[in-house]
Nucleic acid binder design. Structure first.
Lengths: 229, 229
DNA sequence: TATACCATACTACCATACAAGTCAAGCTAC
DNA sequence: GTAGCTTGACTTGTATGGTAGTATGGTATA
């Protein structure tokens, strides 16, 4: 369907494989809610839209389904996964557990070079305060990744990324005005606790930060029940 | 390669998809070290062995590569992933963080029916003491999954499963004589702390339990350096 | 009018064919 | 003898064809 507009979105000429490019494009589209939860998205349709064959599309679908972003029902169709409240809450739970332990680790042996880097990021985050939600989300992701890599847990970050995908998808539904200033304050609290070598306070600050992220989830579910399972 | 013995391993006649069956079979083979780290494993070869076409094999490979169990190098070949020490240690780190929070949650609101279930499992674990490593690993997995599901974190368990795969692969290399009796004692300590509603002790017991799992990893790496990255 | 049935147009699944990159053995030129 | 090229046998990546299962809408029947 959408049989008229064959707008032939073009992919880069093979710097990386077609599958990888398509995977990234679809993943971003789903998280940004450019593709709405529950939307149908068949292999053939996507293949035609991107001017490629069905096989790479299918392979991109597999990875997205494994991440819980697509649901493929054999012989029936493939759909953007509806948002499951338990799944999102569990993703937040996992992320909190992992990042709490990461900052605990950092505070046990404070690295002042890392702290300086983080403080620099805080300043740059302040500059975004009036800016776009997208820009802040990017800065936020860099901040959290810096913590993980600073603790030498780069592989653990991969898990957080997967959990974050579930969470971000919901956040992008919530009309985009999260309290940037407060979030930055929470970031600062984490950094300060690390700098002072106070693991308990660092952990607590991170938990508070991550627990506050999905507070308006019930509201969103009431506003858009059709997006939820 | 292995051109003679085409022993045609047969898959079930389509109760579930060919891809899913093959995925499970290969995953088990890798974790059990039936397929050694670094071993070559081409799409065509596996397809022939199972009497199916290359496409389903390829799709199973994608999922296994996403889990870090295979490494596919374009135009070069596909290999069982060598064991990366940082990756394994980070997997343990993530698992500890998640399961520590799970038992903390359970101890905050002890469910005596769950405790009874767990105590029953402890008894059954005792019966295995002289038995096979495989049997104990299965019982161990059930125990940990019961904790996760008891805390209402069934989705979080999916993450643990992925981390466990990395860890179990190493454990199966270590000549199989882990101290079963001690591990059961540690399980009991967790259950007791939950029953008594002591979150701090439950957390601590779980962390001790999981930290003790990979102690002989350096020994294994010395014994079989060719399996490591 | 309500319901069982059936043709048809989808879907994802699997098989097969072709394309393109990689690597190593062996030949050629020097 | 050796460096460098050619060639061919691999590999995974992509395209296309055919199959079986599913939903849907129209039609005949009670």
């Amino acid at each position: 369907m959408t049989g008229e507009k064959t707008e032939q979105i073009s992919l880069q000429p093979m710097r990386t494989s077609v599958v990888d490019q398509l995977y990234a494009a679809l993943r971003a589209a789903i998280i940004d809610n450019d593709l709405n939860p529950g939307a149908r998205i068949s292999e053939a349709e996507v293949a035609q839209r991107y001017g490629i064959s069905r096989q790479p599309v299918r392979e991109a679908f597999i990875s997205l389904a494994n991440e819980g972003l697509l649901e493929v029902r054999p012989q029936r169709g493939t759909f953007v996964a509806k948002i499951s409240l338990p799944a999102v809450m569990d993703a937040r739970f996992v992320r909190e557990a992992v990042e709490a332990d990461i900052v605990k680790l950092l505070a046990q042996a404070p690295d002042m070079a890392l702290v300086a880097d983080l403080r620099g990021q805080l300043v740059r985050q302040q500059d975004i305060v009036g800016g776009s939600a997208r820009d802040f989300m990017d800065a936020d992701e860099i901040f959290h990744r810096t913590l993980a890599e600073g603790a030498g847990k780069g592989n653990a970050w991969r898990v957080v990324v997967e959990m974050k995908a579930q969470m971000d998808r919901v956040r992008f539904l919530s009309s985009m005005h999260f309290p940037v200033a407060r979030l930055i304050d929470q970031h600062r609290a984490v950094v300060d606790a690390i700098a002072e070598g106070d693991p308990a306070r660092a952990e607590s600050a991170m938990r508070v930060h991550l627990q506050g992220i999905l507070t308006d989830l019930p509201v969103i579910k009431q506003e858009r029940p059709e997006y939820f399972l």
